[in-house]
Structure formats: C-alpha cells, structure tokens
Design a binder for these strands. Sequence first.
DNA 1: GGCGGCGATTGATCAGCGTCAAGGTCGCGC
DNA 2: GCGCGACCTTGACGCTGATCAATCGCCGCC
Lengths: 255, 255
Amino acid sequence: MSLEAPDLLRIRALPLFEAVNDGVFDRLMRGAFLQRFPRGSQLTTQGQPDNFLFVLLEGAIELEGSSSDRESTLALLWPSASLCLASIVLDGPSLMTARTTKGSLILMVPGDAFRQALEEDAGLGRAVAEELAGCFSGAVRSLKNNKLRTARERLVSYLLAQHQRQGGGAAVKLPCRKRVLASLLGMTPENLSRAFASLGPHGVEIDGSTVTLREPEGLAQLARPDPMIDNPIGESFSQAERERRRGGRTAIAAH
Amino acid sequence: MSLEAPDLLRIRALPLFEAVNDGVFDRLMRGAFLQRFPRGSQLTTQGQPDNFLFVLLEGAIELEGSSSDRESTLALLWPSASLCLASIVLDGPSLMTARTTKGSLILMVPGDAFRQALEEDAGLGRAVAEELAGCFSGAVRSLKNNKLRTARERLVSYLLAQHQRQGGGAAVKLPCRKRVLASLLGMTPENLSRAFASLGPHGVEIDGSTVTLREPEGLAQLARPDPMIDNPIGESFSQAERERRRGGRTAIAAH
DNA sequence: GGCGGCGATTGATCAGCGTCAAGGTCGCGC
DNA sequence: GCGCGACCTTGACGCTGATCAATCGCCGCC
C-alpha cells in the first residue's frame, strides 16, 4: 500500500513527524508505506536486526522478551506508539519480539532513511529524543514496578490505572487475555486467578474480561499507588510521557 | 569551578557533545560548570524536578528507586555516563534518586539551556537520541534480567559479565559493597551471601570484594548467559550501546 | 447435537527467597 | 588496648508465588 495524501496528513500529525522539515519529511516518506497485518503477525524477532521503524496506527502489539525457554510479556503497545525506534537509532539488534494481538495498520519507515533524516533535521532529533525519553521512563517505571511491589500490588495498581484511564467508571475492561496480563504483571496465570479471587472481599468482581471495582478507594490502600511508577496516561514504553507534558489528559481511547 | 580550556576540550570529546555546532556548544557551556561532590552526595531526588544535566567524569553514582518504605538499586553509573537526560528532555520529574558512592567530578549543564540547544542543533539531537536509545536498551535488559532469571542466575551472569569486562583474568573485583550488589541484583544481602556460598562447588572463591572464578566455562552453564540481556560493555543505562556500535571493545577501565 | 481444544480456574505441593535473630570479622576512634 | 559500629555471614522459619494436575466452561467445527 503506497502513501496517499490523506495518509500523509495523518502521518504528518504524529508527534514524531510534526516538527520535521518539509523536504526531509518528503524524502523520508518516499520509502515508507502502510501495511495491514493480521492478528498474530510477528513484526520483530529478539536478536535479529530491525530494518524498519514501525508506527502503530490501528490495532495492538505485544512486546515479549525471552531467554532460554522462558518468556515474558514486557509491554503492550497501542496507537499511536512507535516500535523499534531504539534499535533503528543504534542500528543494533531488536531487543524484543513484537507480535500483533489484533489485526493492525502499521506505518513502516526504512531504517537507513530514518537514520539519515535524523542526521539532517533538528526537529526530528528533538522528537526522537522525546519519544525515547518516554520509552526509557516507561521501562524504568516497569522496573520499579517489578522490583518494589508484590504480584498482588502490581495487579491492584494495574486495575486502578486502567480504572482511571478508562474514565473512572466502576466497570474496567481488560485489554488483553488474562494469560498475557499475567505475564505482563510478572506472574503465572494461576497466580493471577488467585490474586483476582483474593480481591473479592475488597469489592472486585470479574466477569470474563470485565472487572468491576466497587470500592476503588479501598483498593488503593492495598496497592501503594505511586505516581512515579504508575503512569496516568500510557500503558508503557513510548507515547506516555509526552502527553503529560503538553498539559495532557487529552481524551485517550479506553484501552 | 568555572570551565577552563582543558576542561572544555575534554567535554567537547564526550559523545554527547562531539557533533554539536561550535556556536551552540559555546552557548551551552556558558552556563555549565564542573563540580566535585564528596561520597554520599545526593544529586537527584525521585519525584523532584531536575534542573541540571549531569555528566559523570570521575567517580561513581548509584541510582535508586523507592516506593513506600521499600527501595532498590536500579543501576550503577561510571564515567562517562550521563544522568537526568530523560527528565531534562521531557522537562519532567526525576525518575530515580541518584547518590555518589565515591568522591566524584561532575559536569553540570543547566536544563533549560540544554533543551534550547536541542531544538537548534541536529548533531546534538542525534547524540541525545543515541544516548537515550542506549539508556532504554539498558533498562529493557535489566527488565528481562529480572523477569526471566532467578536470583542465582542473575548473580552468575553478573560475575561472568564482570569477568569478561575486567579482561578475563580469574580474579574479579566487585565494584560496590555487597549490600548494593544484592539490591542491584534484586535480592537481599543474606540471599546474596548464600548464593555466593552455593557457587563454591563451581569454583567461585570470595575474599572481601575480590571474587575468583576457577571455572568460568562451567559457570556459564548455570547462568543461561544471553547477549540480549548481558551487555558485554557497560554496566547499565547509558554509555553501553554506543561503544558496541562503533566497533567498540576499546579498552574500558575495569570497574 | 456431539466433539475437541483452548483458556481459565481450583487445589495440592514445593521451591525460592525474604525475614528475623544471632554471631563473626574488620576497621576506626578513644 | 579496648570497645563500638558497619558489614557480612549463618541458621531457622515462614510466606509468596511457581509447578503440576485435574476440572470446568466456552466456542468453533465436524
């Protein structure tokens, strides 16, 4: 699928590209294209070189790390997150395996063209710096989440964050299968089940992928919520920090 | 301490600044200065705004995250790592608390001047992007290290990484107190002691802060060493990735 | 309708690791 | 020299969470 004018407008408005020089942008887009991927497509492989910068326009992506025979979900990406930015900038191997968890529409920009544009354009440099700072910040949050909290605290924090992100209503929709959520939270599916069950007395009801929080305030006392760990806006890596800075809290689709 | 010519030369050669325009560099350095800090100085506080970009020229820094009453060491920084780059770029609060663990010489650059220079100079933008990509990469490695390995595997991997980094001799010098190492590896000091003891049968001898590895190859079988987790060059966050790319393995002082 | 498979749950058991408490060693200052 | 404190070590115990196994419910398919 080659890029049409309406696509270009949409892309131009992305935070990564909005400050880029017209000429540089045009050259960059000459090699870029949109592609639709069915659910389950593997976009990157941990340890393999990345040749494209991805920007997720519609759909969802799961980032997974693995070593030996173990694997763990490290993050979930939503529109309009970028993917592979760090490995493209460093011209190094992919850090994680990325897989679509829904049918997805993705912008693909050739890596070498992107690196070249980065050398020429200060606006792009600044945008990339901001994006990567957000990624780093998200990763550090995740690290703190894992090292400083128990599994149950992580679950409660996650539920409260989703609760806030989805508008504060009692019903919260889980954005992924429980198995994936368990891995993201650093626990086994069995343990996640038990953790949910243990929250029953605190007003948490589960029905499929909908969770109802009857007493969010009470929950908060279980979780040690912490603004330096739980991001009020984004899920993790990328996309999160920028919005806060811009006076954010601009309506975000309920993930 | 204001900046003299030899200082400026040294700073100019740092990866962050080597591609910056002369004029921009001069303006940036007008507000910058060098400062010596005694051991134990707190440079940043988690959650508080950061007003300076730090570059560690001599000494060592510990990065710590905390929540409620728990705390954990997230990384150790060595020359010539940068500190606060992400929070300066985002103009947001500090992610971690930073403290010198030795007397240290540090370059301090005012944050707003740095942000302004970032808007003007593509060379700086690229350098910052590379540095932050390296930070992100380091944080992801650390996350995988924590989620995919047991405490003992983390210790063995750490020892092997230090072994390689210090030139491959049998004797490895621990770069920090055991208490700090334990926290960095996500375990208690007691558990670290026991883990060390359990490695005795595998040729690991401990004497104070020097560890002797009699059979490194055998150790590797315990550890699941993984190039996508263990960084051959740097310790973590910052400084690591760039060198690899440049055909690295340029002699690195044994930390 | 019946069957097969996947995901989620539940229970029993176990290992890893944290916690608490008690030494032990070293270095420093009086 | 003596005593104190910081750091590390060792042991006993308990909790968190992983593992293994069985069951249930749901959905798609034959």
